[in-house]
């Protein structure tokens, strides 16, 4: 019986939209907006190459790398958590979301230290266009992280149920997709701001 239901869910999963259809409308909208941000950074880089490269040199790459690894690892935990909830719901699954939240909190703390160090060193959004983009785009991204942490808290509560309805699974997937979106957007921001 268990085998059968799992086989069924496998077949179903092949053609199913992950999460709710609506979350993808949200993802598409957010990707388009961040595309505008990415293009603005690239335009700035092309027009003021010297300023952008000099300013990029003043960033501490270690903060950026650490934050990238934190988000990637957080995404892994959340992805595993969703898989576990789907295949064997139990109270233990909440640990994966707990670990994911830990990574997210680490990101926020790291970001605060990084910004603090930059502001103490005399850099602010009005320093030049690079720093304007740096503070505002990573700030908008930070808002996404904070919203994502709220979503993960909600998922954590849901994940400990011993049986999950199809709709609850969908909600878990939708929340996780938002968290991965936060990760995905950071990857490109990190590349454009820290590595170019």
């Amino acid at each position: 019986m268990v085998e059968l239901s799992n086989a069924d869910s496998k077949v179903e999963m092949k053609t199913q939209i992950p999460g709710e259809a609506g979350i993808w409308a949200f993802v598409a909208g957010d990707l388009l907006v961040f595309s505008v941000f990415f293009i603005l950074i690239a335009l700035g880089h092309a027009e003021q190459t010297d300023i952008f490269e000099a300013s990029r040199g003043t960033l501490d790459l270690r903060f950026g790398i650490a934050n990238t690894l934190l988000l990637l690892t957080g995404s892994l935990f959340v992805a595993i958590g969703v898989e576990r909830c789907r295949s064997m719901p139990s109270g233990k699954n909440k640990q994966w979301f707990f670990l994911g939240i830990g990574c997210g909190v680490g990101f926020v703390v790291n970001k605060i230290f990084e910004w603090n160090a930059k502001i103490e060193a005399g850099y602010s959004p009005v320093t030049n266009d690079f720093y304007m983009y740096f503070f505002i785009f990573t700030g908008i991204h930070l808002i996404h992280v904070l919203v994502g942490l709220g979503v993960l808290l909600f998922l954590l509560r849901m994940s400990q149920r011993s049986s999950l309805s199809a709709r609850e699974i969908q909600t878990l997937e939708s929340g996780a997709i938002f968290w991965h979106l936060v990760d995905l957007l950071w990857i490109m921001l990190f590349a454009l701001l820290y590595l170019l």
Binding site: E20, G22, G29
Partner: peptide
């Protein structure tokens, strides 16, 4: 329900 996501977006 997708309209709710459009609103949040």
């Amino acid at each position: 329900r997708w309209a709710a996501y459009v609103n949040l977006w």
